[in-house]
Simulated assay, not measured.
Amino acid sequence: MKTERKIIRTETPEARPGFLGAGHIARQLVGADFEASDPFIFLMDDVLDKKDTTPSGGAHPHAGFETVSLLLEGEIGDEAHKMHSGDFQLMTTGSGVVHTETIDRPMQLRLLQLWLNLPRKYRTATPRVQDLPLKHVPVLDEKGVQIRLYSGALNGLTAPVHHYVPLIVADVSLEAGATTVLDLPAQYNTFLYILEGGVTAGADEQPLRKEQVGWLDLFEEAGPSTLKVVAKEEKARLVLYAGLPQHEEIVVHGPFIADSADAIPELYRQYRAGRMPHIATVPAAQRILL
């Protein structure tokens, strides 16, 4: 018998000016309490309406986790790793890597970028990047509902992305009045982020509106579960994230994640000594186009 999941916590993240300058609005969707959000460390919704050619962003290091990027609008990245609207990227920073996100021309952009925990035994994994372009994303169209599956397995779809932590990422669109029932592992920590319109979700039909986050109840034992989502009087769109908690403590410092505070200075030393490769220069086997 499948457990019916329900929404137990609703949040409305505040829109704030972002670090990319004029026209950048950022919402922090995840990041207040890692024990509650495990395996999700941070998730930002970055919206940019850039009017000038002053470069924003640039090269910077990361280590100890994975970045999970879903580009909703625009394009970003360097020539080796250019993302366009609807593309998805999972970068394993592992032992340490540098990557570049520079925006130097007028454009509109919206990016959801998640920091995903790496289990302790994989914390220093060899860096790699997996790119899944929109044209290769598995899609299900059925009864007024479209599911684009970027990661994991959901409702008969399976995405080609490889994982250290089991992860589901799906972009779900519903026509007005449409209903979908999503099949999820009961032990996956799961939340929805509403991009457009409004829905009711879960066994108790909790309402969620645009720019709200809804967290599901979570079960310790493995097993199947379902989440019912219904669009209201207008079409709706949401992104679903579900991941297996790792139950490990982490230390977050700047661009790095580590097992302990003692490991952070060494990561900075490696970066300053030039011992972290740029992701564009790693061997071809570590740059995976799906």
Rank of each mutant, 00 (worst) to 15 (best):
G96Y: 04
T180Y: 11
D49M: 09
E220N: 13
Q28C: 03
Q212P: 06
A203H: 13
L149M: 10
H60W: 07
R110D: 02
Q108P: 03
A284M: 11
R123K: 13
A36Y: 15
L132P: 03
L289I: 12
A285D: 08
H247C: 10
F219M: 06
V169W: 01
I103W: 01
D45F: 04
L140N: 06
A263T: 11
A280Y: 05
H60S: 03
I264S: 07
P55S: 00
V98C: 07
L227Y: 03
V30N: 00
A170N: 02
K50P: 00
R209F: 07
Y122K: 12
K50E: 07
K51G: 00
S85W: 10
E101Y: 10
A242P: 00
D33G: 12
P224E: 00
V239T: 02
L289T: 13
Q108I: 05
L184Q: 00
D262I: 09
L72G: 04
G77Q: 04
P207S: 11
I25L: 11
L29E: 03
Y268N: 04
A80L: 10
Q28E: 10
L43N: 01
E75D: 15
R9V: 02
E196I: 13
D104W: 12
H99C: 12
P138E: 02
G254P: 04
K143C: 11
Y188K: 00
R105V: 08
E14Q: 13
G21S: 14
D87R: 11
G254K: 05
M91A: 13
H84Y: 13
P160Q: 09
T3K: 11
Y122T: 10
G197D: 04
F88V: 08
G18N: 08
V165A: 05
A285V: 14
E233W: 03
G156I: 10
H247L: 12
A153S: 14
L112R: 01
A15C: 08
R105Q: 13
A263Y: 10
R237T: 05
D262T: 14
V129S: 15
H81Y: 01
L112H: 00
H162Y: 09
F88S: 05
L20K: 08
P127D: 04
D141N: 15
P160V: 04
V199Q: 02
Q113V: 09
R9L: 10
L182G: 01
L267E: 01
P39G: 07
V239L: 03
E205W: 13
P255R: 03
G18T: 14
G94R: 05
L192K: 03
Y268K: 05
Q89C: 06
Q212E: 15
G18W: 11
E14H: 09
N117L: 13
A80S: 14
T281H: 14
I250R: 07
K143Q: 15
I250E: 04
D104M: 03
K121H: 12
L112T: 03
V145D: 05
G58L: 06
V252M: 11
R16S: 12
R27V: 00
Y150Q: 11
I250M: 10
Y188G: 01
D262R: 12
Y271T: 07
S56R: 15
K50C: 08
T12E: 09
E4G: 09
F88R: 06
D78L: 04
L116A: 00
T67E: 12
V169L: 10
E4C: 04
A201R: 02
S37I: 10
A59S: 13
T93V: 11
L218I: 08
V230I: 14
I8R: 00
D131A: 08
V172W: 02
A236M: 02
V239G: 02
I257R: 03
E266Q: 15
P160A: 06
